[in-house]
Design a protein around this nucleic acid. Sequence first.
RNA 1: GCCCCCGUAGCUCAGUUGGAUAGAGCGGCGGUUUCCUAAACCGUAGGCCACACGUUCAAGUCGUGUCGGGGGCACCA
Length: 585
Amino acid sequence: MKCSGAMSQVLNTMVWRTRRMMTPAMLRNELESVLESSVRSIWGDRIPDDFRAVVSGSNNLEYGDVSCQAAMRLAGIVKDNPRAIAGRITETLTGRIKGISSISIDGPGFINFRLSDNYLASTAFDLASSGLQSLLPDTGAGREVLVEFVSSNPTGPLTVGHCRQAVLGSTISSLLEASGWKVSREYYFNDTGRQMTLLGESLAARYSSAQGDEAVIPEGGYHGSYIIEWAADLSAELGTGLTWKRDRDTFIRFAEEKAMKMILSDLSLLGIEFDRFFAESELIPEAVTDAIEKLSRITIEGKSLVYESDSGKLWLRFTALGRPKDRVIIRDNGTYTYRMPDIAYHLDKFSRNYDLVVDIFGADHLDTSRDVAAALECLLGEKSVSAKLRVIIHQFVTLVKDGRKIKMSTRSGEFVTLRELINDAGSSDVTKYLFLTRRADAHMDFDLDLARKQSSENPVYYVQYAHARIAGILRTADEAGICSPVEFSGDVSCLLDGEYERELMRLLESVSVRVAAAADEMEPHRLTEILADLATGFHRFYQHVRVVDTDNSDVSEARLMLCRACRRCISDLLGILGVDAPDRM
RNA sequence: GCCCCCGUAGCUCAGUUGGAUAGAGCGGCGGUUUCCUAAACCGUAGGCCACACGUUCAAGUCGUGUCGGGGGCACCA
């Protein structure tokens, strides 16, 4: 980017200085602690220890930019009316708070604060120059978190349901990363047991049929047509002489390898990578046996947690742990049921000393997941588990095509794959974004007809368009020889005192706080809300305010800085979602 | 039978430890372009927040119950 004489003139006439960055989170924290100490200094020990003067955003411009409702809370405690309380609190703090230009008491007793123009401009500037992450609180502070997601067994391609989980998991991971966590993404899969045998046998059946032999896919086996292709590959590689009886392992391992490749390629469509693929076979038999041993040493009310039934099965007494049913953990044929290796897996995860362990599961795992958590709490102590384990359960997806819902069943081979979905929707960006427009715990109808529309009806394009528009402005500005300052000066705020500028700055200021909240709650759908707000805010600003104006270069430069802040904010957020931020559309 | 989720504008959905006049997109109606991307903007209509009771100074938000819808619950994973 080149800078003209006008620019250097501005640089000369303004006093640029470095300063300590004041983030929106710091401002709110400071505000809260000032309010709190004011309250405590007035009423002393009448205030409960857990009292907090919480500050939140105002939804109405007339009521300032941030507000505090402490006075209403205190009414019952100090026996006075809220407006009088608010008055006493504010008396003690006039002129003491950085970043605040005025304070008022409104309504039943809200204390409303107006952010100073200087502060607003400075946060916009910080966004423009250093990006969103520089304003986010460092919640993770380098602590380590393990996020497990997808964890689909290698039996076929990923489906629409896995797609939602993949998008959720990778976005939550990125969000945590942006908040200062060191994130490991892990994929757990079952490479042993009945399902793999069925898969291998299904492959063997397809393999035999291809050679004209009569062969039937086993009861409960896999009917997907992709296995026909694997069978062809298998005979091309190893010839036609294999039989299920003699070469079980060859069939199973070949199928597993093919399935895993399929899954990896599906994931790459979404741009998702894992740090580790953890196979169940790594736990068998030592880790699982060890876990059973630990559990069997525990007795609750005189009864052993692990017991054997007449038929030779081994049970875990979940009812003693507050769960509704006891469950079989070892079948009479000596194999483990799903829960047992999963408990061992979680013990393994906990033994690796992560500060936080996040599980992302579909609604079908709810019951098991609670059993696993109960077993963990029993072995490791309730406190250490509840403090570290975070389970996010998401509801299922229904596809809507041509206005009608598509029914899916998994094993039968009648399902829509992730790959088909992305092809049908036209791009992975659209798919990813739309999956994040709903809360994880809400059922979701994925509307393919909407996904295919390349118009403002489609929320992705609305946001991307805002980004492309800003990029266009920056190009125009560059050609006109205008660029925004590289250092911040407080003086710049007087150039941005218009209604639309302030509205945009106010919005930009709130973004990092909202993103931090989304990270704390692990609710990535809030990011699409924020993005939509940013796009709307920018479009509105653009419609009313001329940015590139060579006759008014100082104002133009200041406005350009807002544009850059907005663009950076949008692209950083889209980056967390893994969605492209195009410069042209 | 047990468990989970949902019920907010015509449709799809947001709604920040409970707070001020309940919001957005799409759809409807009416406008805006000699000007940096009209994939945009502005205005307008449209709501007993399923229902009842309770807690509270204050409930879309919390509790109990009722009704309605979706989903899950294996010795599959």
